Each structure stands twice: as structure tokens, then as C-alpha cells.
Simulated assay, not measured.
Amino acid sequence: MDTTDRCTVNSLREVPGCDPSAGAVRWDPVHSLWNGGMLAAALLLAPVYASWGAVTVFLVLTGASLLLGHSVGFHRRLIHRSFDCPLWLERALVWVGNCVGMSGPFWMIRTHDLRDWAQRQAHCHDYLAHRQPMLIDAWWQLHCRLTLDHPPAFDLGAAGKDRFYRFLEATWMAQQLPLALLLYLGGGWGWVIWGVCVRVSASVTGHWYVGHLAHRRGPQSWLVKDAGVQAHDIPWAAIPTMGEAWHNNHHAFPGSARIGLYPGQSDWGYAFIRALAAMGVAWNIALPEDLGRDKVLARVGPA
């Protein structure tokens, strides 16, 4: 295990006067039209093209992309760097994460790290804390963006210089087209609607919904001292989120590759990382006991 602090907010750089509390929520036309279009296609066309094959494609692709791409590739590797792996594997996992359909890798890093940093402060904007009622928060998170009056800076490091990641950032929506073509060849329009539109809409909406609940209600084992926003676990969402729904654990140990920490806490993302390690393509895996978080945590629930 190296001595790197795996719990830092990796890409964000504080600058004099930066403030996570003052800013304006504005409509984001790119993500709004994308998210709204996928939802409309799912609601209007999915019933027409429903079949056992199409639903199976939806389930398999959604599970695989959330596990390999969003949970392991984007979140635990690219954002938190909670394990090391060859660059070719990182790029493959990040490409799968890109295909989840939320946005490109740079947007995902900045959005995550801004929220991560803000929630550790004494005060932050309601947008960053999921503090508004559900319908308002849904509109904000799925169709808007926050423009802070005094934002921090970002340095994406090696990822920001990577030509492949720059390509994904510029073409993140178009990355659905090769997949759509393969699905069309395999099962026609039904597979395209369920394998792209329904999958993307369910992933994006589900990501917001679990995130909203995880900052408002649910079990807690830990409080992070001096943090203005605390997290909760969402047990029923552990399997569909591949372990990400143990969000109270994640706030407590943000650099840990393992998020489901206690008996009965399913964590398929960590299980996949262990499988990679068994194959010799993942190493330096950070766990809670490696992170030295005792001074910033207070236990409030059973282990």
C-alpha cells in the first residue's frame, strides 16, 4: 500500500475566496434535452417494443454497465483512485462508464468532486446537498447545473491530458451509436429502445434518486466531523447500484475500494475488483483500515 491520501478530493483545487454556498441554478440544455429525450423515448416507445429479449438486453446491459463502468471504472478508479490497474483496463472500464449515458468522464469527475468537496464544508448550496424537495431536486439534478459565484479550480491531472478521455468527453452521447447499431442488428428496434433509451433513462434517473435519498434519510453508522452534509445508507438499492448505495460508509471512507463494509452489505463492485486482483490486473487496493480516518469520524450506529 502506498502513502497517498486516498480520501482527498483529487481534481478540485481550492482558490482564495472559493465558496460552495453562493450560486445560481441554471438550465443545462445539453443534459436536459438528452435526459428528457431518453425518458420520453422510454415512456412512449418501450411499451410498444416490449419483448422478453428486449427486457433481457436491458437488464444485462444495465447491470454490466453500472458494475464495470459506473461503479468500478468511473467512481472507484477514475475519481477516487481506490485501486491501481493497467491503463488499458482503466480506459476500457471508463469507456463502459461513458456508455452508461450520464455524461463524459471529465464532467463526471468535476461534478462528483465539486459535490464531494462542498459536502465536507460547514455550509453548501442546496443543489450540492440534495436539500430541496424531491421534484425540485429532480429538476435541478437532471436538467440544470449550478454556477457558483466563487468556484474552486480543477486540475484533472493525467486523465485530463489523456487523448482517449478527451475523445470520450467530446463524443459521450455519440458513443451510444455503435452500441445501438449492434443492438439493431441483433434484435431490431426493440433492442435499441430497451438497450439504449430505457437503459440510459433508468441509469440516470436511478442515480439521481438514490443520491437524493442517500443525503436525506436512512441508516447511519458514522458521522463525519465538521461536515455540513451527512450521508445515509439505502439498503434496498445495494444490488442495483453494485454497492454504491452504502453511502454512509462511502462518506466515512471515501477512498476505500470496499463500500459494503459489514455483514449483509452486498458490494458487487468490490467483488469485481477482487476478481481483477486475482487475475493480476488490480493492485494497491485501498480499504478502510488503510485510510487513517479515526480522527474525523464519530460512530453513531452498530458495526
Rank of each mutant, 00 (worst) to 15 (best):
H112L: 10
T241S: 10
N284A: 14
W194T: 04
G23C: 04
N35R: 05
H70L: 12
R293S: 14
R216G: 00
F164Y: 09
H70C: 13
E14P: 04
H150M: 10
L114E: 13
R216H: 04
A252W: 06
F253Q: 09
V55L: 11
G186L: 05
D294R: 14
C7Q: 09
A277Q: 13
V200P: 01
R26D: 11
H143S: 11
Y127T: 09
S51W: 03
R6G: 11
P288F: 14
G104S: 10
V196H: 06
H75F: 04
N98R: 14
M102W: 12
M38T: 06
W189V: 07
A138Y: 14
T4D: 14
G255P: 02
L67Q: 01
E289A: 15
W268Q: 13
L114T: 06
G269N: 11
S82P: 09
A24G: 10
S256C: 11
T62H: 10
G243V: 08
A50N: 06
V25E: 00
G186K: 01
S266I: 15
R26F: 05
F74P: 02
F154T: 00
L39Y: 07
Q265N: 10
S32K: 07
C85L: 11
H207T: 12
T111H: 13
G228N: 01
L291N: 13
W246H: 08
G211T: 04
G195I: 02
Y49N: 04
L223E: 11
W107A: 11
D126Q: 11
V210E: 02
G186D: 02
E90P: 12
C85T: 15
L213M: 08
W107I: 11
G187A: 01
D294K: 15
G187S: 02
I239N: 10
L182P: 00
G17Y: 03
F253Y: 13
I285A: 12
R76Q: 09
V25W: 04
W95H: 14
A252M: 05
A54V: 07
L45K: 05
L261T: 13
M242R: 04
S203L: 03
T4R: 14
A50R: 03
W208F: 08
A54K: 08
A214H: 00
V229K: 00
F167T: 07
N248C: 03
G36C: 02
P235Q: 03
L66I: 03
N10P: 12
I136G: 03
